[in-house]
Simulated assay, not measured.
Amino acid sequence: MTKRPTINDIADKAGVSKRTVSRVINGATNVNAKTREKIQQIISEEGFSPDKKARGLASRRSYLLGIIYDNPGTFYIDQVQDGVLQVITDRGYELIVHPCDYHDAGFVENCIEFTKRSNVDGVVVLPPVSESEALASAFRQQHVNYVRMASVALDDTEKMVISDDRAAMREVADYLVSEGHRDFAVISGPQGFSSTAERLEGFSQALKGHGITIPSTRIIEGNNTYESGITCARELLQLTPRPGTIFANNDEMAIGVIRAAYDMGIAVPDSLRVIGFDDNLMAARIIPSLTTVRRPVAEMAAMAARKLLARIEGNIADNTSTQPVKASLIVRESTGKR
């Protein structure tokens, strides 16, 4: 039976200390590139994998990270997981996903209990949960490492990853007006969420710059689900006169709009233009394909994971990104262009 290589074996072959090997395994930045490459090559050749239990005992870490969310969009969660796993897998961490009910009176206690029960080293918190200052305060009191993803700056730079939704909506408005569209309606997200406000205000203000105001009767609140997109679209499409363009706060609702229009015999894009937000997996696959705003969710999640590991491992150099992540318009068939 072949003896399993140890960290001491790797250190001997590389001619370095065990501590240096440990730093490479843990993703620390204070090892020069040549030494890091040499150690990684030996690790690969020897088929070495750290004993996670011993590693955790030595470092007082669990090597577990969490994602906390209350978001009905399954495509969104999949993208977040993909982004986080891209960063953490090679560094020996595992991922635990924890859904919660943001509207439940005890959701803060529920999230704190999750961190204690699972013994995670830190959590990435997704909107709308990330917008809870009560939860962030509880994390600080309990010394839980966290990074929040959101549409606005809510915390210290090293604890935030932000997407510039407002700027993206200005791009949407400018494009639609340049195409001659002036008759708009909106299916917003739930009120009280920063993403809802950023997208609605960004769109409305940009349209005002073109001399266009959306009547309040043409702004309806959805809950970011496919089903609510259908319900809200039916209400809007029964108005007289009927709106010519509908922006929905996310792709799932926008796809619901296309379904409702199909059921009512309204052709998209000939009689109705539809725009979503997120560019989820289905946006390019439905017929007609959906014009939407591409928010690089996996990239944001990867950035959040890097910031979280920087907090856990004390690698300050990995935690310096301050710029909002750019979202951009993707034009497809639902607004008349292939």
Rank of each mutant, 00 (worst) to 15 (best):
E235W: 00
R199D: 01
R306H: 06
V147N: 05
R332L: 10
T245G: 03
E227F: 08
E333M: 11
V274D: 02
D78C: 07
I286S: 04
G66V: 09
S271H: 09
M149D: 08
V16A: 12
L65R: 06
M300W: 05
G314N: 09
K208S: 11
N110S: 15
A261K: 04
G56W: 14
V87P: 01
P127S: 15
D279I: 04
R242G: 02
K3D: 03
Y146V: 07
V325D: 02
S137K: 15
P243V: 00
S289L: 06
A153W: 08
D164L: 06
D104A: 15
T291E: 01
Q81L: 07
Y262S: 14
R170F: 06
A260R: 00
Y69W: 08
M169Y: 01
R294Q: 08
I220V: 14
D164Y: 10
S328E: 13
I230H: 00
D51C: 13
K13D: 07
A298P: 02
V16R: 06
F184P: 00
F75W: 08
G15H: 07
M169V: 04
T2M: 07
C232F: 02
I286D: 04
A298E: 09
A54D: 09
T291C: 10
T225V: 04
L309E: 08
L154C: 05
I68F: 03
N250P: 05
L239Q: 13
V257C: 01
V152P: 00
A28W: 08
D101Y: 08
L95H: 05
E227D: 15
T320H: 04
I43N: 09
S132P: 00
A58L: 09
V108W: 01
I230F: 04
D9R: 13
V125H: 11
A284T: 13
